[in-house]
Nucleic acid binder design. Structure first.
Lengths: 174, 174
DNA sequence: GAGTCACTGCGGCAAAATGCCGCATCGAAT
DNA sequence: ATTCGATGCGGCATTTTGCCGCAGTGACTC
């Protein structure tokens, strides 16, 4: 399976690429839109993994072009922020699935192969606790800001010192 | 436009029904699955609004049947909890749009008429503040539990007293 | 090389929030 | 009438938060 990985975060991209290779995929990597479109034009591709936020570029707008070059490929979105409206828009534009970071390589591969991510019937009781929600959101925003604690704290509307303290104590007691 | 409203929360349903009628729709209401399927069989319907959580019944499973009876109708999901995987599954089952409560009657109507809810491109900076996220989540869970504060507090993993205090001070500021 | 600037880690402290009692009330079900 | 669950609220010890400030570091400039 030939996979095109389009993701601007170098660390995340290489990690995921390695994991996919280990699972038997041939992986092409692109960090930006032109690189991605170039590869989509010239190579034969079965599946594409697209980040929604490529620096200042909106990944959503790449979907139609990528699919025009590779109409038979499966295209899945892998994004950090993510929202229901954007997921629906992506699907309308032709994406086949929409995953949220952090997603395991197995999840990505399953989505590429067309096994829609098993959506466990959300029971009424599986609502996340406040602490869990907070933790996940902090991780997301932190990653969004490239690990910059000062900016993250400002975006979250809390004190930088508070963020530091939260981060310092979160890992141990989950 | 004939609209079938399938929603178990009586208050929410009648409110939305009234709002849609005021906007020129003919509204049929159903509180449960059998009622909904009965109306879908016998009436001519242009649009359906379906809640995902009808008491113990999973609204998702109704989608194919409803569409079988009304293949030309637009079916939109309106749900309180909502998640990206469930939104994707609903679309795969044939739903046309997927809205989260609270949604304005205008949003519902726009979705019914096929104007996909304008998804303002989520900028990198429009990440919700921690306080806002917490507030929205509390509202969601509170509604999920029918306004029961004790149960909500337990589900959120916080003290009942704390929840009361949060609720008491939230409305004024923001 | 000196200086500037942004970011980080940490200490301290007053103010606020939280957890954890208990008590009184109220309505519905028994 | 009594029981039971839910609610609103007071009090209080403990924890968390906001808001300083200071020192160290790395990058970038003059």
């Amino acid at each position: 399976m030939n996979v095109l990985l389009i993701e601007d975060d170098e660390g995340f991209r290489t990690t995921l690429a390695l994991a996919l290779k280990r699972r038997g995929c041939d992986v092409l990597q692109a960090a930006g839109q032109h690189e991605a479109l170039g590869l989509a034009e010239s190579e034969n591709i079965d599946g594409m993994v697209l980040d929604m936020r490529l620096g200042a570029v909106d990944g959503m707008s790449l979907i139609p072009e990528l699919l025009r070059h590779q109409p038979k490929a499966r295209l899945i979105i892998l994004t950090g922020y993510g929202s229901i409206p954007s997921a629906l828009e992506a699907v309308r534009l032709g994406a086949h699935d929409y995953l949220l970071k952090p997603a395991s390589a197995d999840q990505v591969l399953a989505a590429l192969q067309g096994f829609s991510t098993a959506s466990p019937r959300p029971a009424v009781s599986d609502l996340p606790s406040l602490a869990r929600l907070e933790w996940e959101h902090i991780q997301r925003v932190l990653h969004e800001h490239g690990g910059n604690i000062s900016h993250t704290a400002e975006a979250l509307g809390i004190d930088r010192r508070t963020l530091q303290r939260k981060l310092a104590k979160m890992p141990p007691e989950e």
